[in-house]
C-alpha cells in the first residue's frame, strides 16, 4: 500500500508564489561558513520573518538578496531574475524595486529628513519639485513624521530615524522591503509604532516584507511566515502558530529564550572541580 505525501500547508510559500526564491545558498566569510545549502521562499504580499541567534547571518541574507554580496554557490532569484547574474546597470534597476531599512536607519547625515526621503526620487526621476514635495510629505505623514521634515538626522531619536528610513525605503513604492533588526534598542512605544507601520504599510501598499530580527514575540506577532536559521541551515519554518509546536530542540530553545539547551550556557571549559583544584595547587 503506497503512502500519500501530506498535502502542503497552504501557508507555505512555493517557488511559484514567491517574490524572492533562494536555492542551495552557500556563503562563507573567510573560513567561517554562514550558509551551507539554504532554501528560502519569500511569499508575495506577505510579511516573512527571518529569525535566528546572533551571528547566524540574517543580515547577510538581506545583502545577498540585494546583490551587495555574492554567494559562493546557489542562486537568489527576485521575481524570477537571478540577482547575481546581473551586471551593474540592470542590478541597479532591480534595486529600485527593493527598499531596505538598515539597523540604525543609515540616514545620510548631510541631508535633512525631507532630503533623505527625497533622495531616491531626486536620483532616479525627473519629477517636478512640487510633486517630489507632495510625495515626500505623504510618505513622512504615513510614518507620523511630517512635522520633522526640516530636522537633521542627528536630532532624531533612534526610533524616529528608523521611521524616516522606512519612509525613504517606500518612497519609490517598491515591491519588496527588507527590514534589518528594526526593533533592536527600541523602547516599547517605538517598537509598537514600528510593528504597526511594518504591518500596515505591507497591507496598504501591497508590499512584500522580509523582517530580520531576533525579537521573537514582536516579529511573530506581525509575520505571516517565519524561518529560523542557525548553523548555516534553516532549522525550522512555518506560520507563527506552527512554529510554536516545532520539535526542533534548537528552535524551541530560541523561541522560548531558554538559557541552556543545544546552545550551551557555559562556554566550553574543563570541569569546574578541575579548574578550582588547579587554582588551589598553583
Amino acid at each position: 500500500m503506497s503512502t500519500q505525501p501530506p498535502p502542503p500547508d497552504p501557508a507555505t510559500p512555493t517557488a511559484d508564489t514567491s517574490l524572492v526564491s533562494v536555492r542551495g545558498l552557500h556563503f562563507s566569510h573567510g573560513q567561517r561558513v554562514i550558509y551551507d545549502g539554504v532554501d528560502i521562499d519569500i511569499a508575495r504580499g506577505k510579511v516573512t520573518a527571518i529569525m535566528g541567534p546572533s551571528g547566524t547571518g540574517k543580515t547577510t541574507l538581506l545583502r545577498l538578496i540585494g546583490g551587495q554580496w555574492r554567494p559562493g554557490r546557489g542562486t537568489v532569484a527576485f521575481d524570477g531574475v537571478n540577482v547575481h547574474a546581473l551586471r551593474r546597470k540592470p542590478l541597479y534597476a532591480l534595486r529600485r524595486r527593493m527598499g531596505m531599512l538598515f539597523q540604525h536607519g543609515a540616514l545620510l547625515t548631510d541631508l535633512n529628513v525631507f532630503e533623505n526621503v527625497a533622495f531616491p526620487l531626486r536620483e532616479h526621476s525627473d519629477l517636478p519639485e512640487a510633486l517630489i514635495r507632495d510625495l515626500v510629505l505623504l510618505k513622512l505623514d504615513a510614518v507620523g513624521l511630517r512635522g520633522a521634515a526640516d530636522l537633521m538626522p542627528e536630532s532624531l531619536s533612534g526610533g524616529m530615524a528608523r521611521r524616516v528610513a522606512l519612509a525613504r525605503a517606500v518612497v519609490f513604492d517598491p515591491d519588496l522591503v527588507m527590514y534589518d533588526e528594526p526593533f533592536t534598542g527600541q523602547d516599547p512605544i517605538s517598537m509598537g509604532v514600528l510593528m504597526r507601520l511594518i504591518r500596515d504599510l505591507n497591507n496598504a501598499l501591497g508590499l512584500t516584507s522580509i523582517v530580520v530580527s531576533h525579537d521573537v514575540d514582536e516579529v511573530l506577532s506581525i509575520a505571516d511566515y517565519a524561518y529560523i536559521v542557525a548553523g548555516g541551515k534553516v532549522i525550522a519554518a512555518g506560520t507563527p502558530d506552527a512554529l510554536a509546536h516545532t520539535e526542533d530542540p534548537l528552535a524551541r530553545q530560541f523561541l522560548r529564550g531558554e538559557a541552556d539547551g543545544p546552545v550551551r550556557f557555559h562556554y566550553p571549559a574543563p570541569a569546574l572541580a578541575e579548574s578550582l583544584g588547579g587554582l588551589r595547587t598553583s
Binding site: 541597479y92 534595486r95 545620510l108 532616479h124 528610513a165
Partner: peptide
C-alpha cells in the same frame, strides 16, 4: 550601503 541599495553608486 544604503546608497547602493537605493541604486545610487
Amino acid at each position: 550601503s544604503a546608497m547602493e541599495m537605493m541604486a545610487t553608486d
